[in-house]
Design a protein around this nucleic acid. Structure first.
Lengths: 235, 235
DNA sequence: CGTGCTTTTGAATAGTATCAAGGCCGGTGG
DNA sequence: CCACCGGCCTTGATACTATTCAAAAGCACG
């Protein structure tokens, strides 16, 4: 991790940052003094699973995967995050971070320590409220995923995961969606909760049926509606 | 739902209620005026999936299952809750309740509407903070479950689910744990994310191995440590 | 003592994971 | 420049696990 020159919050172009949304000028100035900004390279660990909770990380720019190690040291990708997102908030009310976070490409991350956050929570109810709503949304997504994990077959899981990745890192290009990140099959498999061989088989099927193409190791989804239908066959 | 005589918050013996933990006397008095208390019988629906979010439910006394309907109308039990717990908070920041809630036995539930909650959130940062921490914990549990759902086999899922039920509704009796609720096999299967036949098979195995006994339709876990080992074979 | 319910068990089938081999591709060094 | 190496990806065969369907057993209730 390389500590770099801070970008003041006002100049930061992340419009979905909870700090920027909830804080006034005075608070922002104070945060600018206290925050630590760092640059992480691709593949670098931002948070280590089991590490002591020291504060909250804000993604100013970049792409991050949140991972969790399970049985037989199998990795599960819990979620993805990008600019404007926060990581490390799962640690709230706990001593240790339950999940790790890894940069998927060069990322700039701002950090606020527990004391600063506590001050914010006491003085700025809007900030806490925003964060709470954020949790609520993540909880909904997470529980929805539990349900689908238990009920979907492998093909549906892959469809779901591709759509998920597209939602975070996808760029629309006419009717297609280009997944704008260097992601391995293992990553997608870890997100879907299946193994890489199965993933490969399903991807081959999708390629055969012209649902997606892979050029220069970038996925391009050409038939989104097909995947969406797979995901929710009964709604 | 039968609206019944209100128990004032001060007289309520739920010591883990977020309202009681965060509010002062004046606020409690106000809440006593505004809250609606109702009694639900066993099997009665407290929240309907997809219903418009009107507020938050506090379990004063009772046992509740939170359910979600998925593919092929299969039911997934998202979590269990008991006295002191809250339900309906998944609706925060959303128009409709993403999950339903059903009383598993006679339950007394207090309800606060959105307007009252909003007032609390603005005036009482402690309340919002407590609620946020609650979300954080649920999110951790939820994500942990995603991981295990993807990685555990049927036997491990059953062990995990039995332990989960025991954690909420279990009463220790010497070395054994009695699961103090009338719960169907289908419910446990829906919690584990498997089908009832599989559950039955695993339960038979457990009975054979003296891990648990069933008397008068009540489960008694006689060898907790065995289930715990199954759940986390590598820690 | 049926009747309708849940639970249990069995057998056939479908689905998934694992193991193994080979292909593809970029990087390295002769 | 090209052969070789190691990484990731793909594919096939096989073993294993889970689901489904069907039937019988157990149980509460009138």
């Amino acid at each position: 991790m390389k500590q770099n020159k801070k970008v003041p919050c006002v100049e930061c172009n992340s419009c979905s940052c909870y700090i920027k949304l909830a804080c006034n000028q005075e608070e922002l100035n104070h945060i600018d003094e206290k925050k630590i900004s760092s640059t992480y390279v691709k593949g670098q660990q931002i948070i280590f699973e089991g590490e002591v909770v020291k504060g909250l990380f804000f993604i100013r720019e970049g792409k991050v995967k949140v991972v969790s190690t399970g049985l037989n040291n199998r990795t599960q990708i819990v979620r993805l995050a990008k600019s404007g997102g926060i990581i490390g908030h799962r640690g709230y009310g706990s001593q240790k971070y339950p999940v790790g976070a890894i940069a998927m490409e060069k990322s700039e991350i701002c950090f606020l320590n527990n004391d600063e956050l506590k001050t914010l929570h006491t003085n700025n109810s809007q900030f806490t409220y925003q964060l709470m709503i954020c949790y609520s949304e993540e909880l909904r997504k997470s529980e929805s995923k539990i349900k689908y994990m238990a009920q979907m077959n492998v093909t549906e899981k892959v469809a779901d995961s591709l759509l998920y990745v597209a939602q975070y890192f996808g760029v629309e290009d006419q009717k297609a969606v280009i997944i704008d990140i260097d992601i391995t099959r293992q990553d997608i498999a870890d997100l879907a909760g299946i193994n890489k061989e199965q993933l490969s088989r399903v991807l081959s099927d999708f390629k055969k049926d012209n649902i997606l193409t892979v050029t220069e190791n970038k996925f391009i989804i050409t038939d989104i509606s097909y995947l969406q239908k797979l995901k929710t066959p009964f709604n």
